[in-house]
């Protein structure tokens, strides 16, 4: 479990505009730069690889209109 990433992921899934103000400098509360980078890149395989909860990845994908199946299978 990547608790810090999951917490942030859940917030972004509920308010995608939070992504706009997110950069490496905003990394707080144990959120690693790689987590932030994966979020900003909307990189679902990277989020998965970094331990994000699959259901939160799906919520994130839904909020940002990313086709999860295509994105994950293409990269996977």
């Amino acid at each position: 479990m990547n608790l810090a990433l999951d917490r942030l992921l859940r917030k972004v899934a509920r308010d995608a505009s939070l992504l706009d103000g997110l950069d490496a400098d905003t990394a707080r509360g144990g959120i690693e730069e790689g987590d932030i980078a994966a979020l900003l890149a909307r990189d679902l395989p990277a989020l998965s690889a970094r331990g994000a909860h699959p259901l939160l990845i799906m919520q994130f994908a839904g909020a940002l209109h990313i086709e999860a199946m295509a994105s994950l299978r293409r990269e996977g």
Binding site: L44, P45, S48, A52, P54, L55, I57, M58, A61, A68, M69, L72, R73, E75, G76
Partner: peptide, 8 residues
């Protein structure tokens, strides 16, 4: 499979 490379 949900949000994994095997999705689908």
């Amino acid at each position: 499979w949900v949000a994994t490379p095997e999705m689908g």
